[in-house]
Nucleic acid binder design. Structure first.
Lengths: 196, 196
DNA sequence: TGTACATCAGTGAACGCGCGTTCACTGATGTAC
DNA sequence: TGTACATCAGTGAACGCGCGTTCACTGATGTAC
């Protein structure tokens, strides 16, 4: 049963979306090809037709997730201080409690190192985009190199903060909240932005 | 073939050590019971006799790894500024390039959230110990609450920095180095310690 | 515009494999006398 | 100290299961005339 070109593209998108959500929630190794296909309402044959392997889908889904998150962060940066908005958007309870819909870097940080070079490359691109976002939201009086260094440190701290907050929330929610707040305070201190 | 009590304890320790190394290097889902037993020079029956399940071993191996890393960090804090030494010990190329022997938090940060409450609890304990280490190395003039908040933020930033540096090193080593340096600079800026 | 047919997106049965775990067994250890 | 035997740490065959992937097939789509 051949389908329309358009329908086929929709199926591809559905697979990427479902795979991304599941990978973020359960990890790359914690999700099976069958899980993804079920979530997307297709059979595994369709997945292999579109991507060739699970590995390839991992790379595509990660790239898509990173892009989507950068769009979300950018959208959050309206009104008030953009930087404060970005930081709040990252180091938030919502982010911590929504594995599937949150930041792909936070969800997969420590797993990327075990994947192919392609996956690492996709991660790098998404990371650079986020860093660029933070960089452009920093005080433009600062030298460019300093802004970049600061943005790199900030994004790393956000990613770490969310990952650690997620790791502790099951057994010690108060500690988890404390971590998120501490990361926001750290960001404030280092950028000199007004109190949250 | 029953073995000595002592030998049995050694076998248990060998399983925990091997499991820890493998989990850090390949992730909890990326390592099989057979892999662990092979590395420890035992059969899976011994593993089940000692721990009952893979899940239980995950918790034990994580706790052991966290403890071991805290010992390593504490040992690094001799001479000069303890805080600078701690930061260097975390956000270093050695740490990034030695998955199996490095910090268990950095290696597994984003995977903990998907494990049992027990694992989360063990993680929390190890994390608190590291935070305590950083806290005690901070300027003792600061109010206690401020010291704790700062230490929480610092450790989160270290963990994130190492995870992200590891994620990017395969495809962009220069970026990866940049991240490690940025995290060290961030730590310096926020603690007011002398240049590295 | 209408017809004939090659294309190819998606289906579903089948594959071998390695996973975590169980269990009957072994035989050296360590205890009771 | 020496002997008899219960204990139990570790072995290895076997289990069912779900994994990622292949492939012959289907039939609506989209093209060539």
């Amino acid at each position: 049963m051949k389908t329309t070109r358009e329908k086929s593209a929709q199926n591809r998108a559905a697979l990427i979306r479902s795979a991304g959500r599941l990978f973020r929630a359960k990890g790359f190794d914690g999700v099976s090809v069958a899980d993804i296909c079920k979530a997307a309402g297709l059979t595994h044959g369709a997945l292999y037709g579109q991507f060739g392997s699970k590995k390839a889908l991992v790379a595509e889904a990660l790239a898509h997730g990173l892009k989507r998150n950068n769009v979300r962060v950018r959208a959050a940066g309206r009104g008030q201080s953009r930087l404060t908005a970005y930081v709040k958007c990252f180091a938030s309870r919502w982010q911590r409690d929504n594995l599937a819909d949150g930041c792909a870097m936070c969800a997969s940080a420590s797993e990327i190192a075990r994947q192919d070079r392609t996956v690492s490359a996709r991660f790098g691109e998404g990371f650079e985009e986020t860093v660029g976002l933070f960089e452009s939201a920093l005080d433009q009086q600062l030298p460019k190199a300093d802004r970049r260094e600061l943005a790199l440190g900030l994004v790393a701290a956000m990613v770490g903060g969310v990952a650690v907050a997620r790791a502790t929330v099951k057994s010690d929610p108060a500690l988890s909240d404390e971590i998120l707040l501490a990361v926001r305070t750290l960001a404030k201190k280092v950028t000199g932005t007004s109190p949250q």
